[in-house]
């Protein structure tokens, strides 16, 4: 079991009518790993997650979860999964605690055991004092934490999180990350989708970037940056940029490995920021501001999936 992948997919395809949401992807996720799907909206992340969660049947390809066949053994697989969907689907008719107790019962836990798990998890996500209240008045961050507690109720081997921190304020995000990190330390395998690069860097050991239903890159956050970007980025702004952006970009050509003109600034991808600054000075360019920073996953992401808005 140890060396068998927890998720194994070969040539996985999902079509809705004529639309191909997932276009033949291969995946392997090892036990204990924190694995991320990155990609713009419509890249196929959620469709892939739904197939892994065994609620959506693959159109073709092979998909094995926990060593079982995703199509044939759906209920047995789902019994060992925890799912935190993109949109909260907590039950507003039930109290906070009853949400967890009821959910535990779907997994066949006894009533006493369900209550015990519920109370334990409410402590874990710091919602114990809201136990008797309804779900409605909870803040977005609290609802998310409750959803994650619900996903943990069956003590799952694999937890699927679809955009776990979208729409949360920074405090709520950090609390959630910290709780997820603790799960990871306990050996729970996490699979998440996100389009927050800082989230991916915080949580994921390994990730894939999806675009148009395909996997366009794969690796650890560090190795993706090394492969698809340069160690540093110089952000250069010029006075009156909007009219003369292209000219400025041309003037910076050759300073680094790649130049990316944006409406308000030009990004220059370089190995050495200080050397680039010297070169800019040597060329006699007069930027209004220059900022040298380390490359991030966001640079990789934008490089791979483009800057066009996808909806």
């Amino acid at each position: 079991m140890a060396d068998q992948p927890l998720i194994y997919a070969r040539g996985l395809v999902k079509r809705f009518g004529k639309f191909t949401a997932v276009d033949g992807i291969d995946l392997e996720v090892a036990p204990g790993e924190a694995f991320g799907f990155l990609g713009p909206n419509g890249a196929g992340k959620s469709s892939t997650m739904r197939m892994i969660g065994c609620v959506s049947t693959p159109t073709s390809g092979e998909l094995r979860i926990l060593g079982m066949d995703a199509v044939r053994d759906g209920p047995s697989i789902r019994a060992r999964l925890g799912v935190c969907p993109q949109l909260d689907n907590l039950d507003p008719d039930l109290t906070v605690r009853e949400n967890l107790v009821t959910y535990a019962r779907y997994f066949g836990l006894s009533r006493a055991e369900s209550r015990r798990r519920a109370d334990e998890l409410l402590e874990f996500v710091q919602l114990a004092e809201r136990a008797g209240g309804k779900v409605e008045p909870l803040s977005g961050g609290m609802k998310r934490r409750l959803t994650i507690a619900r996903a943990m109720v069956n003590d799952p081997d694999l937890v699927l999180l679809d955009e776990p921190t979208t729409g949360l304020d920074p405090q709520a995000r950090h609390l959630l990350w910290e709780r997820l990190f603790r799960l990871k330390q306990r050996g729970v395998t996490l699979v998440l989708t996100t389009h927050y690069m800082d989230e991916a860097e915080q949580l994921c050991d390994r990730l894939v970037v999806m675009d148009g239903g395909r996997i366009v890159a794969e690796g650890s956050p560090r190795s993706l940056i090394e492969t698809y970007s340069t160690p540093e980025v110089v952000e250069v702004r010029f006075p009156g940029m909007s009219e003369s952006g292209a000219r400025h970009a041309a003037a910076l050509e050759g300073v680094g490995k790649r130049v990316d003109p944006l409406p308000d600034r030009v990004l220059v991808y370089v190995d050495d920021g200080d050397a680039a600054l010297a070169e800019i000075q040597r060329r006699g360019l007069e930027p209004s501001s220059v900022l040298v920073r380390r490359s991030t996953l966001e640079d990789v992401f934008l490089h791979l999936t483009g800057r066009t808005l996808v909806d």
Binding site: V55, R78, A79, V83, P85, N89, D91, D93, Y106, G108
Partner: peptide, 14 residues
């Protein structure tokens, strides 16, 4: 609207 069944179907319930 409540997506209750969506949540239920993520468990072993059919």
């Amino acid at each position: 609207y409540m997506k209750t069944f969506e949540a239920v179907l993520a468990t072993p319930v059919r």
